[in-house]
Nucleic acid binder design. Sequence first.
DNA 1: TCTTGACTTTATAGTTGCTATAACCCTTAT
DNA 2: ATAAGGGTTATAGCAACTATAAAGTCAAGA
Lengths: 277, 277
Amino acid sequence: MEMLTIGQMAKYNHVSEQTLRFYDKIHILEPDTVSQDNGYRYYSIKQCAILDMIQYMKSMGMKLTEIRKHLESRDPALIECILRQKSLQIDEEIRDLRYQKRAIERTLQSYQRYNASPPDGAIVLEYIEERRMYCIDAGMNFYDYGMEVYEEMLRKLKQSLISDKLPQIYFCNAGTVLRQKNLEQQRLYSSEIFVFVDRDYVPDQMTVSIPASTYLCIYCNEFEKEKKYISHLLDEVEEKGYVIDGDYICEVITEFPLLERKERGMFLRLQIPIKFS
Amino acid sequence: MEMLTIGQMAKYNHVSEQTLRFYDKIHILEPDTVSQDNGYRYYSIKQCAILDMIQYMKSMGMKLTEIRKHLESRDPALIECILRQKSLQIDEEIRDLRYQKRAIERTLQSYQRYNASPPDGAIVLEYIEERRMYCIDAGMNFYDYGMEVYEEMLRKLKQSLISDKLPQIYFCNAGTVLRQKNLEQQRLYSSEIFVFVDRDYVPDQMTVSIPASTYLCIYCNEFEKEKKYISHLLDEVEEKGYVIDGDYICEVITEFPLLERKERGMFLRLQIPIKFS
DNA sequence: TCTTGACTTTATAGTTGCTATAACCCTTAT
DNA sequence: ATAAGGGTTATAGCAACTATAAAGTCAAGA
């Protein structure tokens, strides 16, 4: 019977010697014989089969302790059951990765938009496609107080996202809604806070559609300027004879806690849907 | 300015207190103030923004050290670059998970087939769909020696799979081919060893197609019986007047290193493609 | 004022699947 | 004699926490 030293076994199977020693230590693959006098490990070539099985199970995402159990249990039915669970688990992991990817794409889009945006204070007309929002009523008026209330509203939104089992990735690019009626009466009252979500990733019944429309927009790089800029927008509406055609939205385009470490740094797009006539 | 204790901050943001202490320790998020007399940590509510950013970046699969760098660097261009890399990395991870899932499905199929298979030694006719194999010539005759040579051939196959950057998951359900000419002359010579692969996961030019056909099959639960069973098959071919229509294949349906820990436990399907004159 | 219970602190060990290092042993060739 | 190339053990490190212990602090009720 041909025997392999640890180095040969390692090369043969493309694993490191340490890995084999480690497997020995955790009793998942022990060498066929260990020399009495020098303590050398000797592997039987047939043990490659077990190593293959270990690597195969590992490639399916199993932990070594799980694998050891299976090698010991020898019950195919149990293994079958575990494989099915594993399969579902992988589906979840793939879903999570898709979310991650989507999150990254969103961030990149935000950066691009930020770089291509009109300067602070400029008023522009933009056509914006239909969007979906996940919106909650926080029960407090955002415009009554400052950042502190906004932070508290954000906490509530986050809580809500978590209890609806939505991925945290949506917790960026939040925004607030000011209803058309309040806007028209220049009453700054909003208790609603939202995040934009993708139709593909969030069930429709959890979300609300915002119809595509032409929006009168103003870009804003400071939270504190919002109230002033809303009046600018309303002035423009009046001057040009536009008709307000829906709720006002304050959209956070991108956040830079990077720039000032103590609080949020924001870039906002304030928008009022209008029609011409 | 409202201040939060570590417990409040933790609840507010759905992280554990230990996590916040940990973040403090690695200087990724330090509390706004630390009390001089009792050492309590006090967080500003605005620091939630940084925690949000950390969680957001984490949800994109970044490491904490990476995140810290970004929080410190404040360079959007760098971040953009890193995000793009991350996106590619996620694609790879998704691909790997798909492989894993495919591996599990294959194993489950193998188990099912094993359970539904005819008993050892039974000869049956089966129609088998087209398959694709990744095949190498190991330069030694599998039938000349026993398991030892087979193990060595398996090593070569594995090496080849690795250098072609194919996932190790295919390294199960291996098999050998005995060319039609040799089979017809009853010359047991095969130096070719293969694994079945999915068309979707492996480039076509690396693989060979085995056409769909009706096969005369015999099931075999011991490696040593193969030679005997090949004669059984050939006898049956002669007796029934079939015509051999391609290469003989010895397919490993499933392995059970689970049952005997010292070497491979195999279940084979030996198959000869035939036509009815 | 004392006690209770909830909260905080620090320090330490454990998780997973290895890798890296140090310090040492053994054999063989030069 | 020594150098190269194997082997051995033991230990620490990674990442992002979790769990535990032992001790100090705070707020409220009896």
